[in-house]
Nucleic acid binder design. Structure first.
Lengths: 244, 244
DNA sequence: CCGACTTAGTTGTACAGTGCAACTTACTTA
DNA sequence: TAAGTAAGTTGCACTGTACAACTAAGTCGG
């Protein structure tokens, strides 16, 4: 809630002349590439006065009070501007704000969490944007600001939700098989799942529908499916076979 | 991520002289009072230039870059200052930011979600703070700003998490019985739960421990329990008997 | 042309936790 | 001492998973 600023010691109503934190938005966007979880990062500029020159960072930037109607619009805009991609799934992840996270002053970022299929990531990527594999919840290069911490939180959120939702559907191409989908679940969770229980659960969730086509390969063909359109993510009432 | 401000059209590195949104923190704090879910609200001042004079609002206020080390510290401070209470459980709920939510300009609030036992709420409450019953996820008075929307999101989050976590433990007094705990679950979920399944689940979660005392009443005494100290919230692998 | 190989998809049995309902236990009160 | 009430337990049916073996449908190499 915004109220009169008792913090500044001025009790005059409507006084707004006190220092404000910097307000930014950052997006953690995941895709599966080459059988592994990847995250899209952008390299920071090297100009004078730039914090963390040439380090990699999450795509994002300052909220523009003239351009952005709201935070989500800002996230969509920043993602498009910084990386060139658009995401079919975007949710809030959380916010990080403190005196020290940005050398330019007290700043707070509104972090978003996004998923996209690999196919869409092959299109025009911004020149300084790049996909990085996520290994053990971390990234090789040390990230700018507290973005390493934000990324860790995003991976944890992804793992948690994949355990009991249909979120991986947003990581799939337009047409996919059930084993494809299961593989994506397994990649994110980093453990094998039971084939028959997986099939039962997904098929009874009414989230995908078979199309009149099979995936052909060197062995038995597999039924192709597509997402039912307009489907919100499905929440299961159990997790998959629990870790221990 | 904070980066140079391309949005303002100035490409000079380190330029920070552009308008910043207002930054606030608000807290939705719940307690069970009189067999019902309640929220703690504060009445807004009536001074000239004050938005929503005398309306009720979530406790919160502007981030103070001098006083607040980070957002959570700001939430704790605001809760204490505005209402007088302190919460044993505080988590981020999300952020709401847009051009129109505050008549004083583009503003973004970082909303927190808190739980506390009723007993702690009986102590010194700030004079303009007041508990309101939550009926059907809503509050009787129309709230200031978009706080009605934030409250709705908080109730939804609470309901969702109570379905598969031990969060209600933070709504309990220091000593309580299993039927007490079950009643709190039922109040929040607004549906009855199975007694035997509930007991089995809670007792096998290793979150509470019996004390050498019984609750005596007009009928069979009930075993009293307390929370095991230092326990994080427990996540169950199933929800309770699903709504349909 | 046939048998080895591989992956898709199904089936069967054991098990865990819930839903439902009846039951026992332990106390108060008339 | 019997009735009443809430605490706590028990038993059985049911659902969905775990595990594992099985069948199905294709390619490929001899």
């Amino acid at each position: 809630m915004a109220q009169k600023d008792q913090a500044q010691g001025t009790e005059n109503s409507g006084q707004l002349d006190f220092p404000r934190p910097l307000a930014t938005v950052d997006v953690v966007i995941f895709a599966i590439r080459n059988e592994g979880l990847h995250v899209l990062l952008v390299q920071r500029p090297a100009g004078a006065g730039e914090p963390f020159p040439l380090a990699f960072a999450l795509p994002g930037g300052f909220v523009d009070v003239a351009k952005d109607r709201d935070l989500e619009a800002c996230a969509v805009r920043k993602l498009k501007e910084k990386t060139g991609v658009t995401s079919p799934y975007l949710e809030q992840l959380g916010s990080w704000g403190s005196a020290g996270r940005d050398p330019r002053g007290w700043s707070a970022t509104h972090a978003y969490f996004a998923l996209m299929p690999e196919e869409a990531g092959r299109a025009a990527l911004a020149p300084d944007a790049q996909w990085f594999p996520v290994v053990a919840g971390k990234i090789k290069p040390k990230l700018a600001f507290d973005h390493g911490e934000i990324l860790t939180a995003a991976v944890e959120r992804l793992r948690n939700k994949v355990e009991y939702t249909s979120l991986p559907a947003y990581l799939m191409p337009a047409e996919f098989t059930l084993p494809d989908l299961q593989r994506v679940y397994e990649i994110v969770l980093d453990r094998p799942l039971e084939k028959s229980a997986f099939r039962t659960r997904i098929l009874s969730a009414d989230m995908i529908e078979p199309i009149a086509k099979m995936r052909r390969g060197p062995n038995r063909p597999a039924q192709l499916y597509r997402l039912k359109k307009g489907r919100e993510p499905v929440y299961f009432v159990r997790t998959f076979n629990p870790p221990e």
